[in-house]
Nucleic acid binder design. Structure first.
Lengths: 185, 185
DNA sequence: CCCGAAACGTTGATATATCAACAGGATAAG
DNA sequence: CTTATCCTGTTGATATATCAACGTTTCGGG
């Protein structure tokens, strides 16, 4: 993962930002490649140097964030839940526009917007190794059920937090959600 | 004055913005080419494709704004003073960071910061054709004196307005300053 | 004083973005 | 149906930006 040419990063960044902005204004299907290029201040042809079409662009945009979240898993593994969650909520905060748009998007037919589902899957995957096997509190419980329970709960809280304009700071959220996840896993 | 390549505009815009930002943080002389490049997210060498050195960059940055202001003169000639001034104050408002930085900069030795002087000269030039020769109210007055009076007054008010965080909206400023200039010219 | 680090300004080779143009498909109005 | 318009994806030639590298200069500390 060495150096990537500056221009690539700048272009892709501009394109992703453009898509996010446009999605706050209209349905994804109604967005045109033309508009994305204009908003990003990039030549239309340039888009095809990086993406197949607008769906690919949206897909990679989502993928990028899921990967970023995935990275944090490794970093956070050995921490207390409450501490480990802080960077996550900070990340949600920093990328507020993205998450709020994605979670709000009304499932355009055919197209994207499996975002919530993908996010859930990503979290559940991350929780997998965190289920308490030692204390015995989960002996009667099925892993799948636990994961589903904790995953949907986590996504649900995040959704609520984002939709309501992030009424509490990341630290507070991390502490409370951390405590709840601790009990659930 | 036909089309300029997008990349040129983007690069120059980024560089100018970088300079403005850095000038709010430190004296212009202490700013390094390296820093400008980093802040603008541009390769250091790229700067030399557009400018001789950082002084040239600052110079062209100032020049750009003076030209923009000059353009408005032509557009505004035939309007009432109060109306003609609105776009000016809106321009100051939009480029708040630039003007506040430039007017605040403590005349680094040798370097730039003749900004106030250049601004004044620009305004006086614009006022030249606007002195009332008909009503006779200025028969006993010397043009140079009138220009100096009105010019410094105008610059002074702008300076005050900017420094104090633009306490009144552009429309209000335009109306009041317009009335005062009307009397003076 | 000398040294090393950092900034400078420049170069050549390369990568990327731009632009104009094209042909095809979709859409909507007459 | 036909036309006009807009969007799409793609192309080739060109312009611009990037990167690594270099020798030089500047500057502060030892």
């Amino acid at each position: 993962m060495s150096k990537v040419d500056r221009r690539i990063l700048k272009t892709q960044e501009a394109l992703k930002q453009a898509v996010i902005e446009l999605m706050t204004e209209k349905n994804f299907d109604e967005i045109t490649i033309q508009e994305i290029a204009d908003r990003a201040n990039v030549n239309r042809g340039t888009i095809y140097l990086h993406y197949q079409d607008k769906y690919d662009l949206l897909d990679k945009l989502i993928e990028t964030h899921l990967i970023s979240l995935g990275e944090m898993d490794k970093w956070a593994c050995q921490l207390d839940w409450a501490d480990a969650l802080i960077p996550y909520f900070e990340y949600f905060e920093q990328n507020y526009l993205f998450f709020s748009t994605m979670l709000a998007s009304k499932e355009a037919k055919g197209a994207p917007s499996s975002f919530r589902i993908r996010l859930l899957a990503s979290f559940m995957e991350g929780f997998k190794g965190e289920i308490d096997k030692e204390s015995g509190k989960n002996t009667d419980l099925n892993d799948e059920v636990i994961l589903q329970f904790a995953g949907t709960a986590y996504v649900g809280v995040i959704e609520w937090w984002i939709r309501n304009g992030m009424p509490y700071p990341p630290q507070v959220m991390a502490k409370q959600v951390g405590a709840l996840l601790e009990r659930s896993l």
